[in-house]
Design a protein around this nucleic acid. Structure first.
Lengths: 205, 205
DNA sequence: CAGTAAACGGGTCTGTAGTTCCGTTACGAT
DNA sequence: ATCGTAACGGAACTACAGACCCGTTTACTG
């Protein structure tokens, strides 16, 4: 019993890569425009100029397609700012999150991808990896702040960054509260206050 | 042009109410067991012992069914604790949220309902109302704390309660981090630290 | 308690998402 | 440059979610 390699993995270049790019682009557009529930693989194939069979063979379900898009997004993750001041760095991070979530394309896209992660296990894993990458990128500024003595020793840089985003996503998903620059700055300051109070420390386990 | 009243609104008692209860129960079970994407109205009808036509006529789409379930849940919202100590109250709230989100039925159900809110506008409105009700219920303990001088004047009780839940939902949805009692206590303490620092105040607007 | 129409529900029909088949294209190894 | 086969893609097929029809049950009114 030999395991058949997944389609697209043996000859990943040329046409295969072009099809993947076109399909992921079309999937992103469709997710942003209509949401995860309306993701129709046949329509994606049409928009991408690819064959319906191809899309079904390589991705199979909307969830797997969303997962692949998330992996691509994680791979193209952008670098953080470096102001050398923890308050300014956290504020920059919070404002970036708000700008992303209120962006006419990115906002709905992120909502759709979160919906996908709640409907498909593979998409969930990909989404968690995506946020792990984003948090790891920004954790540097909190680690530097500990180094400089701006935050208590033992502070977990990942927890600090996560604490900045958390209230923003809570507004987006749970309460539907508006996201603006004030909300961003408040989120950054709240995370900073908690970190300074020594709440966001590493825990053994 | 007379507007036709929605089915079930003219004769809301007797059989109509029984069917609604059975359908919402079956919908909750299905959402918890298989998630929002797998919500099939015909299957719900079968499980509820109702006619397929009835379910399609009264709810029409999975999103509307989820919205109705959320309204029912908001109406049956449970009262909060009253310890008279803000730290203890926030910890109780955080632990309740963690217990709910890790509950074998409630956890998947909440995930499914959030997925529904990201796929259907009506479900989104219902979800936001649900959290508004929950937050309003618990905001009392923060308002009392301001009254007692445990929190700075001008503190927004709703923001304090939202700040407790936010990191827990962020772990559930974005990072996939485990939710335990430690996480609950940390969330409560972080919210308290931010509130004491005067970050979570009402803003004019 | 009787009459009316609101709501239910079984049976049937249909549009379409997803599968399968098979010929064509072109990646990549030699 | 040549060749084997991985991957693509058009077209026909199938299963089933969701719509429709119409007879039956029953909630509310007076």
């Amino acid at each position: 019993m030999t395991t058949t390699p997944p389609p697209g993995s043996v000859r990943p270049g040329g046409r295969t890569a072009r099809v993947r790019d076109a399909v992921l682009q079309a999937a992103g557009d469709a997710l942003a425009a209509r949401g995860f529930h309306a993701l129709d693989l046949a329509e994606i194939a049409r928009a991408a100029g690819a064959g319906k069979t191809t899309v079904y063979r390589r991705w199979g379900t909307p969830g797997h397609l969303a997962a692949d898009l998330l992996e691509e997004m994680a791979a193209q993750s952008q670098p953080r700012t470096h102001t050398g001041d923890i308050a300014a760095d956290l504020r920059a991070n919070a404002r970036l999150v708000v700008r992303t979530l209120t962006h006419p394309r990115q906002g709905p896209l992120f909502k759709a991808l979160i919906a996908a992660s709640l409907c498909d296990e593979q998409a969930a894993v990909a989404l968690h990896r995506f946020y792990a990458v984003r948090i790891a990128e920004w954790a540097g500024c909190a680690a530097d702040a500990v180094e400089r003595g701006e935050l208590p020793p033992g502070t977990d840089p990942h927890r600090v960054i996560a604490a900045v985003s958390a209230p923003l996503y809570y507004s987006l998903l749970n309460t539907g509260e508006a996201l603006d620059e004030q909300a961003a700055d408040r989120a950054a300051e709240a995370a900073l206050a908690a970190a300074r109070a020594g709440i966001l420390v590493r825990t053994e386990g």
